[in-house]
């Protein structure tokens, strides 16, 4: 009996090792095939990504909440020390902004009248979905985040995602519960922009560094560090005039931009939905508060 068991083992052990090696080789080939397929065919792979992200979204949301709470507690303690100074600064800011607000209201009314006179058709009002950032997949190879807002919440592919201070990215994938936002620093991000008071047209191209590059069509362009960079609206993906950042540095290849969005405090992103409105609606919006409230927040973000 014992001998028989031994001889069985003598046959099965190499067989098992052989099967194992075959399995590894098969899976390795599968992985190689997947790599090649996923580079060219984005449809099925994107679908799979969305399904996985959607499935994991509740876990990510559960994990990110305590992290946010701890971070807020740490911030609260550290902010206590400069509460007075901040209060003084905020008062000054408030007084200044109140003046700007009056001016903005006057200009807005004037703008509306002028647009109506010129019959400019491209008038849009914005609504937005505020979505919590539940995953941060900013790695060495890509810069994107996952937000907790899906199809049902109104998230759509291509919507601009705004942080508190400016444009953070655009929605690249939409699932049922969660969506992936491609950040402006990602190597796949290219946004038509206007630079400085000269409104020079350029493309803001991410390269996975913290400071995306500006690519100009022509060579002789006049701009300086500190010039504002806003979306141009060309290509129709983004509305015109969303704040992105300022020119950080110049070199012989072009320029680099410092995004104004605060990456370290990006707890929520606003996904901007565009809705064309008629002049009648716009006129009504000027009186009704909720829409105006949203529009003012947007222009405040855009003018910073």
């Amino acid at each position: 009996m014992h001998n028989r068991a031994q001889s069985v083992a003598r046959i099965t052990t190499p067989l098992r090792a052989w099967a194992q090696r075959l399995g590894v080789t098969f899976l390795l080939l599968c992985a190689l095939g997947l790599t090649i397929v996923s580079r060219s065919d984005q449809g099925t792979i994107q679908q799979a990504r969305i399904v996985v992200t959607d499935a994991v979204a509740p876990i990510l949301a559960a994990i990110s909440s305590p992290i946010a709470t701890v971070e807020e507690a740490v911030n609260a303690v550290s902010e206590l020390s400069h509460l007075r100074a901040e209060n003084v600064a905020l008062r000054a800011d408030n007084a200044r902004l109140a003046g700007w607000y009056q001016q903005a209201e006057t200009l807005k009314a004037e703008n509306l009248v002028l647009r109506r006179m010129l019959n400019v058709p491209d008038q849009t009002e914005f609504r937005y979905v505020t979505a919590q950032v539940i995953a941060d997949v900013r790695g060495p190879f890509l810069h994107s985040v996952v937000v907790q807002a899906g199809q049902a919440d109104g998230a759509r592919i291509g919507l601009p995602a705004l942080g508190e201070q400016g444009l953070a990215g655009r929605v690249a994938q939409v699932g049922e519960r969660a969506s992936r936002v491609l950040l402006i620093t990602d190597i796949n991000s290219r946004i038509p922009v206007l630079v400085g008071s000269g409104r020079e047209r350029a493309i803001l191209a991410g390269d996975n560094s913290p400071f995306p590059r500006l690519e100009f069509g022509s060579q002789d362009v006049a701009f300086m560090p500190g010039d504002r960079v806003v979306t141009s609206g060309h290509g129709g993906l983004f509305p015109r005039g969303l704040a992105i950042g300022t020119v950080e540095s110049l070199d012989d290849k072009g320029a680099r931009v410092r995004p104004s969005v605060d990456w370290s405090h990006m707890e929520y992103l606003r996904l901007l939905q565009r809705q064309p409105l008629s002049f009648e609606q716009l006129g009504a919006a000027a009186d009704a508060s909720p829409l105006v409230g949203q529009a003012v927040t947007l222009s405040a973000a855009a003018s910073r």
Binding site: L32, L34, I36, V52, T53, G139
Partner: peptide, 25 residues
Amino acid sequence: PHWAIFLLGLFSDLLGGTLVGSSIL
């Protein structure tokens, strides 16, 4: 086992948005 490694790599790639297959390899 090898299939578990394959699944973990696939999961990591799909969730992280990296090229599918790179973590598996």
